[in-house]
Simulated scan of single mutants.
Amino acid sequence: AKKKAPCPGLGLFYTLLSAFLFSVASLFVKKVQDIHAVEISAFRCVFQMLVIIPCLIYRKTGFLGPKGQRVFLILRGVFGSTAMILIYYAYQMMPLADATVIAFSCPVFTSIFAWIFLKEKYSLWDAFFTLFAITGVILIVKPPFLFGSGTSGMNEGYSVHLKGTFAAIGHAMLAAMTLVILRKMGKSVDYFLSIWYYVILGLPESIIILFIIGEWSLPYCGLDRLFLILIGLFGLGGQILITKALQVEKAGPVALMKTMDIVFAFIFQIAFFNRVPTWWTVGGALCVVASSTGATIRKWVQSSK
Rank of each mutant, 00 (worst) to 15 (best):
G164Q: 09
V78Q: 00
N274W: 11
N155M: 11
M185A: 14
A265N: 11
Y191R: 00
A42G: 15
S217N: 11
L118G: 12
G150Y: 08
I116Q: 06
L162E: 05
A114M: 12
M257Q: 12
R44M: 03
G186T: 05
M93G: 10
F192T: 06
Q269K: 10
P54D: 02
L223S: 12
I270D: 05
L146Y: 14
P8V: 03
N155Y: 00
A251T: 08
G77C: 02
R183D: 07
L131Q: 11
V289R: 02
L139K: 01
I102A: 09
F264R: 14
K184L: 03
A97Y: 07
A99F: 13
N274K: 10
L230E: 13
W300E: 09
L17V: 11
K142T: 10
A103L: 15
E215F: 07
V289K: 02
V276D: 03
Y88M: 15
S194P: 03
G136M: 03
I229Y: 03
E215S: 15
N274I: 02
Y58Q: 15
G65H: 07
I208C: 13
W280V: 03
I209D: 02
A251D: 06
A83D: 00
T82V: 13
L241Q: 08
V71M: 08
M49A: 13
E156A: 12
Y220L: 11
G68N: 13
W216P: 14
R44A: 04
N155H: 10
K299R: 06
P54C: 01
V289L: 03
F79T: 12
Q269W: 00
